[in-house]
Simulated scan of single mutants.
Amino acid sequence: MDLRTNLGLKLTAIFLALAAWVYVHNLGDIHKDLKVVVDLSGIPDTLEMVGEQPPDIDVRLRGPESSLVNLSPQKVNLEVNLKDQPLGPGIHTILLDASMVRRPPGVAVDRLSPSSFQITLENRVNKEVPVVVNLRGEPAAGFEVVGTSVVPARVVVEGPESVINKLDSLFTASISIKNARDTLRLELKSLPVVAQVHLVSPDTQVEVVVRIRPIQGEITLQGVRILAAGVPAGVTADSASPRLRMQPATVTVHAEGPRVQIERLTAADLVVVVELAGRNGQDLDLAAGDLAVRAADPQALDVQPLTLSVTVPATIRVSWSGGD
């Protein structure tokens, strides 16, 4: 029999049979579109990805209704492993194909959109940077921050080269000093870092000291009285005594300390004491450093927080005659 007889009819029959087979084979299949996150791995430890992350990929799946109707994006993985690719700093185009999609058996991948994406890689570098104390708020009225310290003072960070090169310091977590009146001492369990920056020693604990004191002031007081201590018997411990002569009878005192106390201080609150015990009855020239500035009434004034010094004159002449 000649096979070429009725060739057109025979080809039509074959086409119809093939179409019927495809129809029967796909009978009951449905399509489902899912947006899937890219699971990227295989980047060498010496490199880090910067810039935009891989986009979510629209995946069109085809398969039995029983396999797809309740299928969620969490059960479909798009695994992109770059371990066998020659990678270095720069921009790389990653091509996607159906073999990268992990899906249930009997489910096919009809489409991936987009079918590729780009990543940018940079060298991973490290750098030592100072730790800076991050303060929030203000101390109580009349108080001030005079300094901070932190241990460790410097830490080593690592990350993409472009990010690390711009990093000049690392801040601690925010520390409130609102209404504080005394020095604060804190222990912080960790240091916050900016995106893509890592601590080489992530378990580093930090000790912070914030030194707070009253706001300081100063004043110069003229006419502060001079009194003598350890005077011989019969000699009045006052410059008005005819047997005790001090020139001059008053001095100028410079005072430094908490401003709230300095603002209330007057010359009448202080006395300058000349110690005469053990000295011979003769003329003495005492330098300002030999004099002690004290409170005229220790019960009314605490001079402990103050720094007091005689500034004028440079020396005081003291003379007296012997006692009875």
Rank of each mutant, 00 (worst) to 15 (best):
L7C: 09
L286P: 03
E144R: 02
V260I: 14
S319C: 06
G90E: 11
A267W: 00
Q74R: 08
V163W: 12
D283M: 14
A255R: 03
L301I: 13
A98L: 07
G137D: 05
A141W: 04
L270T: 07
D290W: 03
E138M: 11
A180D: 11
L227A: 13
T183Q: 12
G42N: 05
R111M: 13
L276S: 02
L188M: 12
V109M: 06
L276R: 02
V69N: 06
N81A: 06
A153K: 14
V197P: 03
R245H: 14
M246F: 09
R62D: 01
V193S: 10
V22H: 04
V206I: 15
P214H: 10
S201C: 00
V209T: 15
R181I: 15
A277E: 15
V101F: 06
D56V: 09
V125E: 13
V50Y: 11
P232M: 07
A20H: 05
Q304M: 08
F171T: 04
A288K: 00
E48T: 12
V194P: 00
N81Y: 00
E263L: 15
T236P: 08
T311Q: 09
T93K: 14
K166S: 14
E218Q: 15
P104A: 14
V163K: 08
I212L: 03
K83E: 13
A19Q: 01
T311N: 07
N70P: 01
R264E: 10
T46F: 09
Q74F: 07
L61Q: 04
R103D: 07
Q282N: 08
Q53L: 15
I164G: 03
L221Q: 02
F171G: 01
Y23A: 15
I226N: 01
L199D: 07
R225Y: 00
A277I: 04
T204Q: 09
L3H: 07
W320C: 12
E263C: 08
T266P: 08
V293G: 01
Q53P: 04
L276D: 01
V22K: 04
L71I: 02
A277G: 11
T307G: 12
L11A: 15
R103S: 07
T266Q: 14
L199A: 05
L135I: 12
